[in-house]
C-alpha cells in the first residue's frame, strides 16, 4: 500500500502526470454526467466542459496547435450547432427555456390531434 502511495506522489511531481490525474479525473466525472443526465442541455454543457478540459491536456502534452483548434472548434462551435439543433427538435424534457415551452405546447396539441 505504501508503495502505491509512493508511486502516486512520484507521479504527481511530474507535470504531465499531475495534470492527467486532476484533469483526467474531472473529464471522467463530466463524461459520466453527460451520459447519465436527464436533461439534454445539461449533457451538452458537460460535453463543452470535456472539450475545454482536453485543451489543458493538449497544452501539457506540448501540442499547442491542437489545443487552439480544439478550443475554437470543440467547445465553441460544436456546442452552438448542437444547441440550435436541440431547439429545432423541441425536446420535451428541457422545458426551462421560454421558447421551448411554447414549442412544446404546440407539439403537445399536435400530438393530441394525432
Amino acid at each position: 500500500m505504501t508503495d502505491f502511495f509512493k508511486s502516486l506522489i512520484e507521479m504527481l511531481r511530474d507535470p504531465v502526470g499531475a495534470m492527467s490525474v486532476l484533469v483526467g479525473g474531472l473529464m471522467i466525472i463530466f463524461a459520466l454526467f453527460a451520459v447519465e443526465s436527464k436533461k439534454i442541455v445539461d449533457s451538452l454543457i458537460a460535453l463543452s466542459a470535456i472539450s475545454l478540459l482536453s485543451v489543458l491536456l493538449f497544452v501539457v502534452l506540448k501540442a499547442p496547435d491542437v489545443a487552439i483548434t480544439e478550443a475554437a472548434v470543440g467547445s465553441g462551435l460544436a456546442t452552438a450547432v448542437m444547441l440550435f439543433a436541440l431547439w429545432r427538435v423541441d425536446w420535451k424534457a428541457d422545458s426551462d427555456n421560454q421558447q421551448i415551452k411554447k414549442n412544446n405546447k404546440q407539439s403537445d396539441e399536435a400530438g393530441e390531434k394525432r
Binding site: E10, M11, G17, S20, G24, I28, V35, I40, S43, V89
Partner: peptide, 28 residues
Amino acid sequence: MSNIIYYVSFIILGIGIYGIVSQKNLFK
C-alpha cells in the same frame, strides 16, 4: 504508473461506448 493518460483516455472511451449502447435517445 506513468501510463496514466492512456488509462484516462481508455476510460473516457469506455464511457462513450456505454453511452451509445445504453441510452435510448439518439441525441444522447
